[in-house]
Amino acid sequence: SPPKPKTIVLPPNWKTARDPEGKIYYYHVITRQTQWDPPTWESPGDDAS
């Protein structure tokens, strides 16, 4: 059997959903933003550039 996916701790107000093909995506319940990649926690002042 395939390994279980890691449990991802989502930031507040993010949910997972499935598209009609069964792929998992993520959406923000307030902004209605959707994305394929797991959302990352906002870390103020932490600039990755």
Rank of each mutant, 00 (worst) to 15 (best):
S1F: 15
S1V: 07
P2F: 12
P2N: 15
P2C: 13
P2M: 12
P3N: 15
P3W: 13
P3T: 14
K4G: 00
K4S: 12
K4A: 01
K4F: 04
P5V: 15
P5M: 15
P5N: 15
P5Y: 10
P5R: 12
P5K: 14
P5I: 13
K6M: 12
K6P: 05
K6L: 05
T7L: 07
T7A: 12
T7I: 08
T7M: 12
I8M: 15
I8G: 13
I8Q: 11
V9Q: 10
V9K: 12
V9E: 07
V9D: 15
V9H: 10
V9R: 12
V9Y: 05
L10G: 03
L10P: 03
P11V: 02
P11W: 01
P12A: 14
P12E: 14
P12L: 07
N13D: 11
N13K: 06
N13W: 09
N13P: 02
W14C: 00
W14K: 00
W14R: 00
W14T: 00
K15V: 15
T16M: 15
T16L: 13
T16C: 07
T16H: 13
A17T: 07
A17K: 09
A17F: 03
A17N: 13
R18L: 05
R18I: 10
R18C: 10
D19S: 10
D19L: 04
D19A: 03
D19P: 04
D19R: 03
P20A: 08
P20H: 08
E21R: 11
G22S: 06
G22K: 04
G22L: 03
G22M: 02
G22D: 09
K23S: 06
K23H: 02
I24T: 07
I24H: 03
Y25S: 02
Y25C: 03
Y25R: 02
Y25I: 05
Y25H: 04
Y25T: 02
Y25A: 02
Y25P: 01
Y26L: 01
Y26T: 02
Y27S: 04
Y27L: 03
Y27V: 08
Y27E: 06
Y27W: 08
H28Q: 02
H28V: 00
H28P: 00
H28T: 00
V29C: 10
V29S: 12
V29A: 12
V29H: 08
V29W: 03
V29F: 01
V29D: 10
I30Y: 07
I30R: 11
I30V: 08
I30G: 06
T31D: 02
T31Y: 01
T31G: 00
T31L: 02
T31C: 00
T31H: 01
T31K: 02
R32Q: 11
R32K: 14
R32G: 08
Q33Y: 00
Q33V: 07
Q33D: 08
Q33N: 09
Q33H: 03
Q33A: 09
T34I: 09
T34W: 08
T34C: 10
Q35E: 03
Q35A: 08
Q35Y: 04
W36A: 07
W36G: 09
D37T: 14
D37V: 12
D37R: 07
D37N: 06
D37G: 08
P38G: 02
P38W: 08
P38T: 05
T40M: 12
T40A: 14
T40R: 11
T40V: 13
T40C: 14
T40D: 05
T40K: 05
W41A: 13
W41G: 12
W41Q: 15
W41K: 15
W41I: 13
W41R: 13
W41H: 14
E42V: 09
S43E: 15
S43P: 05
S43L: 11
P44C: 04
P44G: 09
P44K: 09
P44T: 10
G45T: 09
D46Q: 05
D46P: 10
D46Y: 04
D47K: 08
D47M: 07
D47F: 04
D47E: 13
D47A: 11
A48G: 12
A48D: 13
A48N: 14
S49I: 10
S49E: 06
